[in-house]
Simulated scan of single mutants.
Amino acid sequence: MTAFHASRASFLSRRVVPAYLRIIRANRPFLTPGPAREHLRDRSLRPKTYGPPRRLRSDVVVSVDHSRGLPIYTLIPRTGRPRGNVVYVHGGAWVNEIAVQHWQLAADIAAEVGTTVTVPIYPLVPFGTAAQVVAAMAKLVLDNRSRYGEVCLAGDSAGGQIALSTAQVLRDEHGVALPGTVLISPALELSLSNPEIDVVLPSDPWLGKEGTRVFIDLWRGELPLTDPRVSPLLGEMRGLGPLTVFSGTRDIVLPDTRLLVERAREAGVAVDYHEGAGLVHVYPLTPTREGRLGRQQILDALSKALAPAKTTAP
């Protein structure tokens, strides 16, 4: 996740964001294998900090638990009684650590939805693999269901892949359908073989194919690319709970996202799809007016999913 230098009270033009990403060459690690391997070596040698920024919302309390073998952060509203839980899985191409924008969104969810938010700091490549992390996320959701009641999943980019794969594992292995899963520009089919990706690629200022494959090959571990724990687009959609999905049109995940929406709806899954014309990867996390609208739509979706069930008089 690239750090955009704009305050939360100001907004950049949607046209500024792609230009900025081009200037800083945000897509360099993703375009070709050489820079991808350099980026991987740098991240392995000099890991980035993952802790929350010192200045988050003052109406949210943050704590951390290390007892599971990986840091699990919890964000709760300072006042009121939280209802349910959201597990937020951050993106970063399976190689980059959680960014300030992820923390800000997690804090907004806790405060505005009035829920407990769990942020797991999962192992990245070359140390973490899809099988390992998806299993850990499924266990985390099950444990949180016992503790908090209803649990929703949310994730962006690589975290969106993990979130949807986890939702499928929960359904298949535990008979659990979540009340809501939010997917922000999710990675969905990691062969990157959809021919429409090459049509979108020239307009995407952030991502690329050949460099991303370096990270994917490590992430899949011993699993084939066709395994739904790696490529959830290839998994069964029927029986999943409601999905809220976001994608911009200047984003190489767009073609597979459209396929996800089509297949899920055909399988009877309720899908609320938001496609941002001219917008970039994970646009709800950008400091634009369209990003602000996307964040509000995320909050609305999670509020609806965690709302107390209405009872009717006998």
Rank of each mutant, 00 (worst) to 15 (best):
R289E: 13
V200D: 12
I98A: 02
L240S: 01
R43L: 04
L240G: 03
R78S: 14
D172H: 07
E97K: 10
L207E: 09
T212K: 02
S146E: 15
P232H: 00
L56R: 07
L218E: 01
R295C: 03
R147C: 03
G180V: 00
L240C: 08
T249C: 01
T129C: 04
R57T: 05
V62T: 15
L21E: 10
K48S: 15
R25W: 12
K48F: 09
V176A: 04
H174C: 11
D198W: 13
A26V: 04
D227C: 01
T79C: 12
P53K: 11
T288K: 07
P35A: 01
Q101A: 15
P195R: 06
H39T: 09
G128D: 11
A136L: 14
L45A: 15
A167Y: 05
Y88A: 04
P255H: 00
T74D: 05
P242K: 00
M237V: 03
G51S: 13
A138D: 05
T2H: 06
L153T: 03
L223W: 01
G211K: 08
T257G: 00
F215V: 02
E38W: 13
F30R: 05
R57M: 11
V133H: 04
L164I: 10
L45N: 13
D227E: 00
T74R: 15
R292P: 03
L234S: 05
A270Y: 10
Q297G: 07
E173Y: 03
P195Y: 12
D204N: 08
I197E: 01
L31G: 02
P120R: 02
A138V: 10
P205H: 07
V253P: 07
T226N: 09
R54Q: 13
H66T: 06
Q132N: 13
H90K: 09
R43F: 03
A313R: 14
V86I: 04
Y122N: 10
P29R: 03
L40H: 06
E196W: 02
V95D: 05
I184P: 01
V176R: 00
A9S: 15
F11Q: 08
G291W: 01
P224Q: 07
L40N: 06
L259T: 14
I162R: 00
L233E: 04
A154C: 09
A93G: 14
A187T: 12
A99F: 12
V125E: 10
T32G: 05
V95T: 12
L153D: 00
N194M: 04
P126M: 05
